[in-house]
Simulated assay, not measured.
Amino acid sequence: MGRVEDLDEGLRTIRELASTLGKVDLASLPEAWLERPLSEDEERRLTEEGMQVVSTLGGVLVMGGYWALRKGRPLMISRAVSASGVVSEASKRFPSNAVGERTEVAPGDGPSTFEFPGGRAGIVLCVDASYPELVRLPALEGAHVVINPASIPFDRIYLWRALAQSRAAENTVFFAVVNLADARYKDGRSVEGNSIVASPEGRIIIELGRKETTEVVNLDLDEIHARRERWPYLDDVREFYDGGRRRP
Rank of each mutant, 00 (worst) to 15 (best):
Asp182Ser: 13
Val191Ser: 01
Met63His: 00
Ser88Val: 10
Leu234Phe: 08
Ile77Cys: 02
Arg70Pro: 00
Tyr131Pro: 00
Asp187Glu: 10
Leu125Gln: 00
Gln52Ser: 13
Pro200Gly: 09
Leu125Ser: 01
Leu38Phe: 05
Glu40Asp: 13
Arg44His: 13
Arg228Cys: 06
Thr47Ile: 15
Glu141Val: 00
Ser82Asp: 04
Ser91Pro: 01
Lys71Asp: 15
Leu208Val: 05
Gly122Glu: 01
Phe154His: 09
Glu16Arg: 15
Leu7Val: 08
Arg189Ser: 11
Leu46Trp: 06
Ser199Pro: 05
Leu11His: 03
Glu170Lys: 11
Ile224Asn: 04
Gly72Asp: 05
Glu239Val: 08
Gly2Val: 05
Glu212Ile: 11
Val178Lys: 03
Pro37Glu: 11
Leu29Tyr: 04
Ala181Met: 05
Asn194Gln: 12
Val127Trp: 00
His144Arg: 07
Glu104Phe: 08
Leu38Ile: 05
Arg156Cys: 00
Gln52Glu: 15
Ala183Val: 01
Pro153Gly: 00
Ala181Ile: 02
Ala27Arg: 10
Ser151Asn: 09
Ala143Thr: 03
Thr56Gln: 12
Leu137Gln: 06
Thr13Glu: 15
Ser84Arg: 15
Gly65His: 02
Arg93His: 09
Arg136Gln: 11
Arg238Tyr: 08
Pro74Gly: 09
Ser28Ile: 07
Glu43Ala: 13
Thr113Asp: 04
Thr213Asp: 15
Leu61Glu: 03
Leu46Asn: 03
Ala129Met: 12
Asp187Ser: 07
Leu29Lys: 02
Glu115Ala: 13
Thr13Pro: 01
Ile205Ala: 01
Gly100Glu: 13
Val191Leu: 07
Lys92Cys: 06
Asn171Cys: 11
Asn148Arg: 02
Gly10Tyr: 05
Arg246Ser: 14
Ile196Gln: 06
Arg167Cys: 03
Gly119Arg: 06
Asp8Lys: 12
Glu35His: 06
Leu180Cys: 01
Asn218Ile: 14
Thr113Ile: 13
Glu115Thr: 15
Phe94Glu: 13
Arg230Glu: 12
Ala18Asn: 04
His144Glu: 04
Gly193Asn: 02
Leu234Lys: 07
Glu201Arg: 13
Cys126Pro: 01
Gly244Glu: 09
Trp231Met: 12
Leu75Thr: 03
Gly50Tyr: 04
Arg136Ile: 00
Glu215Ile: 06
Leu159Tyr: 13
Ala168His: 10
Gly209Asn: 14
Tyr158Ile: 02
Ala169Ser: 12
Thr113Gln: 03
Glu104Cys: 03
Ile196Phe: 10
Asp236Asn: 08
Glu207Phe: 04
Gly22Lys: 04
Gly22Thr: 08
Ser166Gln: 12
Gly110Thr: 09
Trp231Val: 07
